[in-house]
Amino acid sequence: MTHNDEHSSFDHSADDAGDDAAYAAALDRLLLLTVLLNDDMHRGLQDDGLTPSRTSLLWTLRRLGPCPQKAIADAMEISPRTVTGLVDGLVATGFVTREPSPADRRAVLVTFTPKGTAAVESLLEQQRGFGRQLFAAMPRDRFAGLVAGLDDVLGTLHALGLRKPF
């Protein structure tokens, strides 16, 4: 081994240590961001009488339209029993109803109430406004880099087996 090879090998170890420290610092920022956003989300949803799980179901229903609980369970990748509990809670709080299907009298469709529609529209507007607060002042190239980096992180998490929340 030449002196240059030894030096190169040593530098590589130093680079690995530097990379590990940078990765740990980046992960710390992601974890802090997660805690801050989670706390804010819980407070906001609680004010509307919702939970994160029930809200996830509302987002899914918004995407699917009126549908049977099984379709919601499949889309959310959760058990039908869990969906039943979530729908029960949303029915009790007035966000959705169970309506007979016009196409199949044996089927029941989960459908938004006016309160549920208004809640989802309000959540969408809050999301847009919060997005503007967070990102509008950021230079476009930095914002594009942030989005690309987050896409990379999310892709890695999905490849590791973590599922999408909605």
Rank of each mutant, 00 (worst) to 15 (best):
T2R: 09
R62F: 03
L157N: 02
R132Q: 14
G129M: 08
V110D: 00
S53P: 00
D47I: 01
R98I: 01
R128S: 06
L36G: 14
F130N: 10
F112N: 00
L90R: 02
L50H: 06
R63G: 00
F166C: 02
L61M: 03
L61P: 00
A14S: 08
T93E: 12
T84G: 07
L124G: 06
A24I: 10
F143T: 01
E121R: 10
H3W: 03
E121V: 04
K115Y: 01
V87W: 01
D151E: 09
T55G: 05
A159E: 03
R62E: 10
D104H: 07
G161D: 04
D152T: 14
D104L: 04
P100E: 07
D5W: 11
G155F: 04
L154Y: 07
S8E: 09
A21G: 06
D5S: 15
P68C: 08
G94H: 08
I72H: 02
S53N: 09
P100G: 06
T113V: 09
Q126V: 03
R142W: 04
D104F: 05
A159V: 00
A25T: 06
T82F: 05
P80D: 05
E99W: 11
D39T: 15
L58D: 03
K164V: 04
F166M: 06
S8W: 10
T111C: 12
S13Q: 06
H7M: 04
L146M: 11
G161Q: 09
D152A: 15
R43T: 11
R54Q: 08
T34G: 15
S122T: 09
D16R: 11
L90G: 04
G94V: 05
D47Q: 05
D20V: 11
T84I: 10
C67I: 12
V108D: 02
P68K: 10
A71T: 13
P165L: 12
D151H: 07
L157S: 07
D16I: 08
D20L: 15
H7K: 03
P100L: 13
R43Y: 00
L31R: 13
G85K: 06
R140Y: 01
R140P: 03
L90Y: 02
S56I: 00
T60N: 00
E77W: 01
T113C: 06
L124H: 08
T156E: 12
D48M: 15
V120I: 07
S13G: 05
S8M: 14
A24M: 09
K115F: 02
R128H: 09
G149D: 14
F95I: 01
L154N: 09
A24Y: 04
S53V: 07
A14W: 03
P66Q: 11
L86H: 06
L33Y: 12
A22M: 13
G49W: 08
I78R: 10
T117P: 00
P139S: 13
R140N: 04
M138C: 05
F135L: 13
P80R: 11
S13L: 06
G94W: 08
L86V: 00
W59R: 09
D152S: 15
Q127Y: 13
A25Q: 09
Q127R: 13
G49I: 15
P100M: 08
L109A: 02
P139L: 12
L160N: 02
L162H: 09
P102E: 13
D15Y: 10
L37I: 15
G161Y: 11
L160D: 12
T34R: 15
A119P: 00
W59H: 04
T156C: 03
